[in-house]
Structures are given as structure tokens and as C-alpha cells.
């Protein structure tokens, strides 16, 4: 598992990566009530705001972690946003993407580095 400074996790799955938000992020957001997912087939660049999460408190953006293409989105979290709080690193994955350059994954934080980041 790899992590971004935006509190996203990336898990390689075949030639794709699965992306979601970390436990820490879901706790900070509070109860999630709405998720807007990107369109499949969409080409994205690292840093693009591609999803919106609304909690009871506020709206937050999810950014594309790396360059690539959105291949699949998790409709379950749009239908049941509470999943993001219940199981952020499991059933509440957000999208799967095909990276333009899979080697970029190595440049992201590992778990130890992410734990240092969140203290």
C-alpha cells in the first residue's frame, strides 16, 4: 500500500491501482453523507480534483494521486456514503485507475512514512 499527502491510499491490483482515503482522513472528515465519483474513461492528471466528499461538516475534494485513466468507480459508496466511515481501506475504495507511468507509484509514501506524516 502507498499513500499520498492528501491522505489517499493506493493498492496495486494487476495492472491497475485501487484508490481510497485513509482511516485518518475518514475520521477527520466525520460522517460522510455524499460522494461524487468521476466518470470512467476519464483521463486525469496528478492533483486534479476528481471526486467530492461531503461530510456532515463540509465538502472536501479527492485529487487524482498520479496521471492516468479512471477505469472503474465504486458505485456502492455513492449509494451508501456511510461506508467511507465504516470501511475506508476496504469496501469503500473510490476508483481504480490505470497509471500512465506505473513506476511513479514507487515515489509515494510507504506506510511508515505516512504514519510519520499524521503523527
Amino acid at each position: 500500500m502507498k499513500y499520498t499527502e492528501d491522505h489517499e491510499w493506493l493498492r496495486p491490483e494487476g495492472d491497475l491501482v485501487v484508490v481510497g482515503i485513509t482511516e485518518h482522513a475518514s475520521e477527520q472528515l466525520g460522517d460522510v453523507v455524499f460522494v461524487e465519483l468521476p466518470d470512467t474513461g476519464k483521463a486525469v492528471s496528478a492533483g486534479d480534483e476528481i471526486c467530492v466528499i461531503e461530510s456532515v461538516k463540509a465538502a472536501s475534494d479527492i485529487r487524482a494521486p498520479l496521471d492516468g485513466e479512471i477505469v472503474e468507480v465504486n458505485q456502492d459508496i455513492a449509494d451508501n456514503p456511510g461506508l467511507v466511515n465504516e470501511d475506508p481501506t476496504g469496501r469503500a475504495w473510490f476508483f481504480k485507475m490505470k497509471l500512465s507511468d506505473p513506476s511513479k507509484l514507487d515515489g509515494l509514501m510507504d506506510e511508515a512514512a505516512y504514519k510519520d506524516l499524521i503523527g
Binding site: 466525520g30 460522517d31 453523507v33 456532515v56 461538516k57 456511510g82 466511515n85
Partner: peptide, 11 residues
Amino acid sequence: VQYPMGVLKEH
């Protein structure tokens, strides 16, 4: 602003 129960469950 909230306790450990969280806003939704508190409501």
C-alpha cells in the same frame, strides 16, 4: 463540536 459518537449518531 462533537463527541466520540459523531455528529450523525448524536443527531
